[in-house]
Lab assay of single mutants.
Amino acid sequence: TTYKLILNGKTLKGETTTEAVDAETAERVFKEYAKKNGVDGEWTYDDATKTFTSTE
C-alpha cells in the first residue's frame, strides 16, 4: 500500500510517499524521515486517503 506524507515544517515543506504493509509501519518511516529533516510537528492521519500530515 502506498502512503503519503505532507510536511508543513517551518524550514521544510513538501511531500513524499512510501510503500508499507500498514499505516503503523508507514508512520514509523515518516516520523524517522521528518526527524532526519529537522521537522518536529503535530501529526494527523487520514485513512481514506492514506495520508499523514506533520505541521509545525
Score class of each variant (00 low, 15 high):
Phe30Ala: 02
Glu19Arg: 11
Lys10Ala: 13
Thr1Arg: 09
Glu27Pro: 00
Glu27His: 13
Lys4Leu: 07
Thr55Ile: 10
Lys35Ile: 11
Thr44Leu: 07
Thr49Cys: 05
Thr25Ser: 13
Lys10Asp: 08
Glu32Ala: 12
Thr11Phe: 14
Leu12Gly: 08
Thr17Gly: 03
Thr16Ala: 11
Leu7Asp: 02
Asn8Gly: 04
Tyr45Met: 01
Tyr33Cys: 05
Val29Glu: 09
Thr53Ile: 09
Thr55Trp: 09
Ala20Glu: 04
Thr16Phe: 15
Gly41Asp: 04
Lys4Met: 07
Thr17Ile: 09
Ala20Trp: 02
Thr25Leu: 06
Arg28Gln: 10
Glu32Leu: 09
Lys35Tyr: 11
Ile6Leu: 06
Gly41Asn: 04
Phe52Asn: 01
Tyr45Ser: 00
Ala23Asn: 07
Val21Thr: 12
Ala34Phe: 03
Phe30Gln: 01
Tyr45Gln: 00
Gly14Cys: 15
Lys13Glu: 05
Leu12Val: 14
Leu12Met: 14
Thr55His: 07
Thr44Gln: 10
Ala26Gln: 00
Ile6Val: 11
Gly14Asp: 12
Tyr45Ile: 01
Asp46Asn: 11
Glu15Phe: 14
Ala20Ser: 07
Gly14Arg: 13
Thr2Met: 12
Thr18Asp: 02
Tyr33Gly: 00
Val21Lys: 13
Gly41Ser: 05
Lys36Met: 13
Glu42Gly: 05
Lys35Met: 11
Ala26Arg: 00
Ala34Thr: 06
Gly14Pro: 04
Gly14Met: 15
Ala34Asp: 01
Phe30His: 01
Thr44Met: 09
Thr53Gly: 02
Ser54Glu: 04
Leu7Trp: 12
Glu32Cys: 08
Lys50Gly: 04
Glu19Val: 15
Val39Ser: 04
Asn37Cys: 14
Lys13Leu: 08
Leu7Ala: 02
Thr2Ser: 09
Lys50Trp: 04
Val39Ile: 13
Thr51Asp: 00
Thr44Pro: 00
Asn8Ser: 09
Ile6Met: 06
Arg28Gly: 08
Tyr33Met: 04
Glu15Cys: 14
Lys4Pro: 02
Val29Phe: 15
Phe52Arg: 00
Lys13Ser: 10
Thr44Val: 10
Gly41Thr: 05
Thr44Asn: 08
Lys13Asn: 09
Thr17Gln: 09
Lys31Ser: 04
Leu5Tyr: 03
Thr53Met: 11
Glu56Ser: 06
Gly9Asp: 03
Asn8Thr: 07
Lys31Cys: 06
Asn37Arg: 12
Glu15Gly: 08
Ala48Ser: 12
Thr49Met: 07
Lys36Ile: 12
Thr18Met: 14
Thr55Leu: 07
Lys36Tyr: 09
Thr18Ala: 08
Val29Tyr: 15
Trp43Arg: 00
Ser54Asp: 04
Thr25Ala: 13
Ala48Thr: 13
Lys36His: 09
Asp47Phe: 08
Arg28Phe: 08
Asn37Trp: 14
Thr51Ser: 03
Tyr3Trp: 06
Thr51Ile: 05
Asp22Cys: 06
Lys13Pro: 04
Leu7Thr: 04
Thr55Cys: 06
Glu27Tyr: 15
Thr11His: 14
Val21Asn: 13
Glu15Ala: 08
Thr51Pro: 00
Thr2Leu: 14
Asp40Phe: 15
Tyr45Phe: 07
Asp47Arg: 08
Ser54Thr: 15
Tyr33Gln: 02
Gly14Tyr: 15
Ile6Gln: 04
Gly9Ala: 06
Lys50Ile: 01
Leu7His: 03
Ala48Gln: 11
